[in-house]
């Protein structure tokens, strides 16, 4: 049998051997309405000369290159530098720019966890998220379940994430409904006084900057 035979539509043997008991790739089904709109919009923008295909590719590449480590560096610096922390809480976008992270024109609101208040971020209307700081949002952040339940029963949702918050803490949820974007500034874990900036950065995960968990090494009680 030649390799051409394998790819022939009339090759009964290969059809019998290749049983389709696996899930087909996502892009093999019919085009969804959202995909059709996206393709039409992209073609129109290119056709009218507003953007070129290269610019779209570059932008997708930039967005895909951003990881939560950017946000972690901001948090670690705020833990080490009280004056920076003060500027960060006053104007998140300007403070990030000091570190070469340009979020403009989006205003970043930084909300600080304290011994009294634990902050959590959600977008109940869609999936607003500080993408230029943390990269693309996780799938669960965009789910209807998270978007509704995190306000109605946040402690239950956090337990499902394995986060057992001190019941004394007051929970404040920030609904990202319009033009602000949010970053939770977690509390610095105890016993990290001698940590370097790199060691501190390692403790700061994406999820603790959304507020559904605490930094690594944190002790809940």
């Amino acid at each position: 049998m030649t390799s051409e035979d394998n790819y022939s539509d009339n090759n009964v043997v290969s059809k019998q051997v290749h049983k389709h008991d696996h899930t087909p790739p996502a892009d093999q089904g019919p085009v969804t309405q959202v995909q059709a709109i996206q393709i039409a919009m992209q073609e129109l923008l290119i056709e009218k000369g507003l953007v070129c295909a290269e610019e779209i590719r570059e932008t997708v590449e930039l967005i895909d290159s951003i990881t939560p480590s950017r946000g972690a560096e901001v948090v670690a610096r705020a833990w080490l530098d009280p004056e920076f922390k003060s500027r960060l809480l006053h104007n998140g976008t300007a403070a990030c720019l000091e570190m070469g992270i340009d979020l403009r024109p989006t205003p970043l609101v930084v909300v600080e966890n304290t011994s009294l208040i634990h902050n959590i971020v959600v977008c109940t209307l869609c999936s607003c998220y500080p993408r230029m700081l943390l990269g693309l949002p996780p799938d669960w952040y965009k789910s209807t379940a998270y978007r509704s339940r995190i306000i109605i029963e946040p402690r239950v949702v956090l337990l499902e994430f394995g986060t057992n918050l001190n019941p004394e803490l007051s929970i404040r949820v920030h609904d990202s409904t319009a033009d602000m974007r949010y970053l939770v500034l977690p509390q610095r874990p105890n016993n990290t006084e001698n940590f370097s900036v790199n060691q501190l950065t390692e403790l700061v995960t994406r999820d603790c900057m959304i507020g559904v968990t605490l930094p690594k090494n944190s002790v809940t009680s």
Binding site: I120, I151, I152, V156, I171, R172, V173, H174, D175, T177
Partner: peptide, 25 residues
């Protein structure tokens, strides 16, 4: 940003609501 009390908004739904909810309006 407007701050709402979770108990005011959702007391009929759940006793485990967020204590406060800040929303841009």
């Amino acid at each position: 940003r407007v701050r709402f009390s979770g108990a005011d908004l959702f007391k009929e739904l759940s006793s485990a609501v967020a204590d406060s909810i800040d929303v841009e309006v």
